[in-house]
Design a protein around this nucleic acid. Structure first.
Lengths: 214, 214
DNA sequence: TAGATTGTTAATCGATTAACAATC
DNA sequence: TAGATTGTTAATCGATTAACAATC
């Protein structure tokens, strides 16, 4: 993924800063649920295990959202962050691969709750094509490129076996997809304008066992 | 998670280096499947999108594994990395929360393929307790601490709803768990000796939409 | 040997943090 | 006003990379 893009009079926002914005958003939602109206960089920091300086610095890349002596209005900061992350619209998402994992993802309510509507499903297993999940019909891989293009879908979740992951990613790119959430344990090769985020539970477990004595 | 632990005559290995070892392992497995016997930092780098210098530097924290002019013997480097990550034994894993996601995880073959055997399942839904998945019987949350202690399980996968995630994590810690793979969208608070890795697909999607024009 | 590639050092680059003036 | 907390600057810290001697 590109390291950063231009923002706030041509200055650049590091990719790692962007990564933290969703976590800020999550904490703010939590605070709001708890009935709070304002918060501080210190409170957010404690909750997230970051430093307050980091939070203020991160936010400063995008503007000024707080008031000295008071802190941040939670509802306001949430709205601002949502706008920055382009979350003030609903995104259509294609889910490719309706195996066990894909099935669970298709049922996972939090996607649509957070504005990511899975509006297209694809699989190449004839037994699955035509099946309906949550009101969406599973289509064949052959229809994929055309169907995604036609719907103007920009985000895809890739939940296919490793051996077809790269070729499927290639088709997604051809279809105009710009963001791929990749569940296959492989480093995908895509053009630089396409973003990829990998989810590999095994890699996480293997990292933690380093710290566990047997 | 702690930033690093001591290694190789008291020197310290940055946490971020440890994070990359599983990816090296994954690439090496791939290369081996392709029939290759040796590789180079350059080849690994290209596959992973890293620099070759980074790969050599990372490995140098743990020893010398290559030969000048030749590169690395794949089978040997794999074994070494597995040993470093404590992957030369099989780990027992407890899976807590057998909803849609938990169910999919319980069926996900790659865990046991990679040496993580899910040997205990827990849920607090009476309808699920007693159910058998892949030969493992779902137990109640009430039995959890005792059961994990007795089995000596050190790794848990947390797939419960957000609202009970922290209290469940507390129980896991009490039961002696040292590594938690957390699927609940919340920052868990645990003692420093317990490692947590978070998997939050929404956060990944929200990061990518930053780079997508609507 | 000549060519290739390691392991390591030093230089560079970037991210985090400490500190504080500004100000609510 | 006094206390609190922001936004920002400069210092620190750490990670990445370039370069190369060593050597297979």
């Amino acid at each position: 993924m590109a390291d950063s893009i231009s923002m706030k009079n041509g200055k650049i926002v590091p990719d790692i800063v962007v990564s933290r914005l969703p976590l800020y958003l999550r904490s703010l939602a939590r605070l709001q649920e708890e009935g709070k109206e304002v918060t501080s960089s210190q409170e957010l920091a404690t909750r997230l295990g970051f430093s307050s300086a980091q939070i203020r610095k991160d936010l400063s890349h995008f503007g000024e959202f707080g008031k000295q002596g008071t802190g941040y209005n939670i509802a306001f900061l949430r709205e601002q962050l949502k706008a920055i992350l382009n979350l003030d619209i609903e995104w259509q998402v294609a889910l490719v691969g309706v195996g066990d994992l894909g099935h669970a993802l298709a049922h996972y309510g939090r996607f649509s709750q957070k504005g990511f509507r899975i509006t297209a499903l694809f699989d190449n297993d004839p037994a699955k094509i035509g099946m309906e999940i949550n009101g969406v019909v599973v289509q064949s891989h052959d229809e994929m490129v055309e169907s995604i293009k036609k719907a103007g879908i920009r985000i895809a979740i890739l939940a296919v076996p490793v051996k077809v992951a790269q070729e499927t990613a290639d088709k997604l790119v051809k279809a105009g997809v710009r963001a791929i959430l990749n569940y296959a344990p492989i480093t995908l090769s895509v053009p630089p304008e396409v973003k990829v985020q990998n989810i590999d539970p095994i890699a996480h477990l293997q990292k933690m066992t380093y710290y566990c004595q047997r």
